[in-house]
């Protein structure tokens, strides 16, 4: 079967770049900043595939480029080069060849994103239900009661009492804000969900419940997900396959069990032993 997402040589830099960037940055050089020209190579040629219904973990320390990777996939940032082919209900779509309106449509209807910081994913000026309504309205849904109904259902589904749907996310705890983000991401039944450090900063019991929710939703709805985290526990619980990134470079990828039990790259070995 065709993968839902096929990413080839995705590259993101901040700066003009020079001929030596390739040689002087990356995991081997232990930096993502080119000493010759000062360019930050955030992601250098990442390639991976994501199959339907699969959860792919992206692991690495901060600054390794993992967030930049998902932000490019969500069109928050534009890549410098590379391609990503998304399987839109059987039609392969080259994501970075689309115009702005087509990208916006894909982002609003086919993808869901959950950010580490709820302030990035939610509009705190409007109610929790309004945040979900926004996604539906972007999707040409214009029936008030149907929108209410859907928002109520999604909030219940993610474990928030529907009675609180008209409250501002300000009044919610960190864990609840993440749940609202998940509900918002799921509003349009997207086949692909991108999760950027969803449990970071939450206490352990709330983390566990959010992870349970994600797994449950994944099984019930058959979603494909890219899960970015620096937390080995999250990777172990969620991901079937894992990518390890360091200094903008993918140093290792494979089955999660394999990576955690028998890490090949020196950095992964260090990472795994540090966590154990």
């Amino acid at each position: 079967m065709k993968p839902i997402l096929d990413v080839r040589n995705l590259r993101k830099t901040f700066g003009d770049g020079c001929e030596q960037c390739g040689r002087l940055t990356g995991a081997a050089a232990a930096t993502n900043r080119c000493p010759a020209c000062g360019t930050i190579v955030a992601v250098r040629g990442a390639s991976f595939t994501l199959r339907h219904g699969e959860i792919l973990g992206v692991m690495g320390e901060s600054g390794s480029g993992k967030s930049s990777l998902v932000r490019m996939l969500y069109f928050d940032e534009a890549p410098v080069s590379g391609s990503a082919v998304f399987d839109d209900k059987g039609t392969p779509v080259e994501m970075f060849a689309l115009n702005a309106a087509q990208q916006r449509r894909l982002r609003n209807t086919r993808f869901g994103m959950v950010y580490q910081n709820a302030h990035m994913g939610l509009n705190f000026g409007i109610s929790a239900g309004g945040n979900i309504a926004e996604r539906l309205l972007l999707n040409e849904q214009a029936h008030y009661e149907k929108i209410r109904e859907r928002a109520r259902y999604l909030l219940e589904r993610t474990g928030i009492a529907a009675a609180r749907m008209d409250e501002s996310p300000h009044r919610f705890s960190g864990g609840m804000q993440q749940r609202v983000q998940i509900a918002r991401a799921l509003a349009t039944d997207p086949p692909l969900l991108l999760l950027d450090e969803v449990t970071t900063g939450l206490d352990v019991s709330v983390q566990a419940r959010i992870l349970d929710l994600i797994l449950e939703l994944q099984e019930a709805l058959g979603l494909s997900m890219v899960v970015v985290t620096h937390d080995m526990g999250v990777i172990r619980q969620l991901a079937t396959r894992t990518l390890v990134m360091k200094n903008g470079e993918v140093v290792e990828q494979g089955l999660t069990d394999q990576i955690l039990e028998d890490p090949q790259h020196a950095y992964t070995q260090q990472l795994v032993s540090a966590a154990l």
């Binding site: 702005a100 309106a101 916006r104 509009n123 409007i126 109610s127 239900g129 309004g130 309504a133 926004e134 309205l137 972007l138 214009a142 008030y144 929108i147 008209d166």
Partner: peptide, 21 residues
Amino acid sequence: QMHGEGDYARLLVKLYEDLVN
């Protein structure tokens, strides 16, 4: 850009919030 793409969902969110409140 929003005008160019006919992207007025956020105005409707404003109406939604009015109805809620």
